[in-house]
Design a protein around this nucleic acid. Structure first.
Lengths: 225, 225
DNA sequence: CGGTCGATTGAGTGAGCTCAACTTGAGTGG
DNA sequence: CCACTCAAGTTGAGCTCACTCAATCGACCG
């Protein structure tokens, strides 16, 4: 039994409060926050940069189960060991808390407990969508869904304003391991979406969405009518 | 935003308490508990039988995201709509609670809130394992993993006693839609595991594990040495 | 400029899918 | 009790989408 939790979007006043209680840590690109099997002793909040969360199979196959962006929260499990590895994609900055400190914080702010629960429910819904993606979507549908997910989280960070562009802080291999594909297939599907005029590469790692409606059709499997 | 939650393994005394507050409902095989998009008004606890949870894509592709067994808990989301459909696999019996009734119950038992959170964390860990399965495992590995998952949940229901057999209350198609395969592939892999002597079909829908160690090797990808 | 690493593109392969035939088993009625 | 029906499961044959392996491209950097 390895209970884990990833949480997002704590209220600003709560974040400020936790920042007072926590300790800051800087990470370089590629540096791990912790490894699979480490005891789950700390609670983290990401403030800068981005992280990837992944699990390895015995023979080296890798599944990226999520990415984390500023404001995201992780490591809130009540016991046991981490069931995954977390690594910085770029220079990153996070705040950590010992579990007793976090527990006493929860006690001081009882409303936060329900908030944490709400966030876990949100993560579960995201996990369920990812299962549909991994279990039933084609390569093109997966990449389109991923781009829309990134676009939406970008929009949420900017207070709900509609966006046309977003960054890809992760490599093609990371994307592949998140979508259950190979890096070659990711590259090919990216080229396909580009040649169909749905997206444009502003730079190697920055995407502009040219036709959002059709991208959403592809993502939802309502393509090739 | 469609927050959802599936929870398991509430403590017996809590279950008893909720049973006093709830209303019982019987379900026939194939009968839905609710549909995708229904407002999330109620909280359920399953007491008898088993259920499947699934999401449909526009063109009919289906992903089963989980199964529920007696003692399992579901529908604890604070707002929004159900993001999936739940259907009975057999005759089933469940207890439901209006959200206000459930909320006041939570208020009366504050310790339950943390318990609910712990269960959600447990579900998240399971969701993460399922992402590894769907993203990176072969057909044989998926089926072996599934059988071990069922065996373990069977053992947990029986108070931790080791078991050799378990039931498959779902059809081959349900299994396929859970594992991201087709029913034909499930059938073929089942025949393969059987011909390799790792399992035996006690009946059409009852499996006996003959070589658990090797089944675990297959499930974890440590096969074909 | 060469060197290196990530991304793209190409060619051929294969695991799992599709389509189809056949088998099994659970009901149902004569 | 057996014949019939119908749904579920199994097996076979061929195909396809994504994979593997390999070559090339391109950006960054000493």
């Amino acid at each position: 039994m390895r209970p884990i939790t990833i949480c997002r979007s704590l209220k600003p006043e709560v974040l400020a409060d936790m920042r007072r209680l926590g300790t800051m840590q800087r990470l370089k690109s590629g540096q791990p926050v912790f490894h699979e099997g480490d005891p789950a002793r700390r609670v983290f909040m990401l403030t800068l940069g981005s992280l990837k969360i992944y699990t390895l199979l015995g023979d080296g196959r890798r599944q990226v189960t999520g990415f984390m962006f500023p404001g995201d929260f992780l490591g809130i499990s009540l016991e046991g060991e981490y069931a995954f590895t977390i690594e910085a994609l770029q220079s990153a900055e996070l705040w950590w808390f010992s579990r007793p400190a976090f527990d006493s914080f929860i006690e001081a702010h009882p409303s936060v407990e329900r908030e944490l629960y709400r966030m876990a429910a949100h993560e579960l819904a995201a996990a369920q969508r990812q299962m549909v993606l991994l279990g039933r979507k084609t390569a093109a549908e997966r990449l389109a869904s991923f781009f829309l997910e990134l676009l939406k989280s970008q929009e949420q960070l900017n207070g709900g304003r509609t966006e046309r562009q977003f960054d890809l802080p992760m490599s093609r291999l990371d994307i592949a391991d998140y979508l259950g594909l190979t890096k070659e297939t990711v590259s090919r599907m990216l080229s396909e979406l580009r040649s169909r005029g749905l997206i444009r590469l502003e730079q190697q790692n920055r995407i502009e969405v040219l036709d959002r409606e059709q991208l959403e059709d592809v993502a939802g499997g309502n393509d090739e009518v």
